[in-house]
Amino acid sequence: MLSFTHTITDPAGMHARPAGLLAKCTQKCSSTVNISLNGKTADAKRLFAVMGLGAKQNDVLSFTVTGESEAADCAAIEAFCKENL
């Protein structure tokens, strides 16, 4: 299991477009990917679960990646977050 945190920098927070892109990115991963925020956890591969977190600018998301290719998946997701969130 690998984990990392990411602070949302987008002034609009995690609205539909970036949430959809994140879900699409994580769906390519063979690992299980979960996101936590303020005590709530969501399956990152499910768009409505990600949007349900209600992440706003300056919120810190915690990602947990578990699986056979967790190192590669974690690196890909972290790079995606830095570019898009």
Rank of each mutant, 00 (worst) to 15 (best):
S69F: 12
I8D: 08
S69T: 15
G54E: 00
T9A: 14
A16N: 01
E83Q: 13
L21T: 10
L53I: 01
V60K: 12
N84M: 11
S31W: 11
F80Q: 00
P18Y: 03
F63P: 14
D73Q: 05
G54D: 02
D73V: 07
A23N: 07
N34E: 15
G52L: 11
F48S: 05
K28D: 08
N84V: 09
H15C: 11
G52N: 01
K56F: 01
I8A: 01
R46G: 04
T26L: 00
L85M: 11
A12K: 07
P11L: 05
F48H: 10
D10F: 11
K56Y: 10
G67I: 05
A71L: 07
K45L: 02
A23T: 07
I35Q: 05
C74W: 03
S69H: 13
C29E: 04
C81Y: 01
S31Q: 11
A75F: 00
E68Y: 09
A75C: 01
L61I: 05
G20Y: 03
G20L: 04
F80W: 14
M1T: 15
F48C: 02
K24Y: 01
L21D: 10
I77E: 00
D59H: 11
S31E: 08
A19M: 09
G13P: 00
T66L: 00
G39A: 08
P11Y: 00
S36C: 08
K45H: 00
T66H: 06
T9Y: 09
A19H: 09
V33N: 13
S3F: 02
T66P: 07
K82C: 07
V60Q: 13
K28T: 15
T9Q: 14
K56P: 12
T26H: 06
D59K: 12
V65H: 03
G20Q: 12
K56E: 08
L53H: 08
L53N: 02
A79I: 13
D73K: 05
E70K: 02
Q27F: 01
G13A: 08
H6G: 07
T32K: 15
L2C: 11
E83M: 11
C29H: 01
S62Q: 15
D73N: 06
D43P: 09
T41C: 13
Q27R: 15
N38L: 12
M51T: 02
G52F: 04
P18D: 00
T41L: 10
F80Y: 04
N84L: 05
C81S: 10
I8P: 12
A79W: 07
G20F: 05
I35P: 11
V60T: 14
P11R: 04
T41D: 15
S62L: 13
V60F: 01
A49T: 03
A16W: 05
Q27K: 14
E83N: 10
N58M: 12
R17Y: 06
A12H: 15
A16F: 06
S30I: 12
H6F: 09
G39F: 12
Q57K: 15
T64C: 02
E70N: 07
I35D: 04
A71Q: 15
A19K: 12
L2S: 10
E68D: 14
V60G: 07
F48G: 04
T64H: 02
L85D: 05
S31K: 06
A16G: 01
P18F: 01
R17A: 09
T7D: 02
M1I: 07
V33S: 15
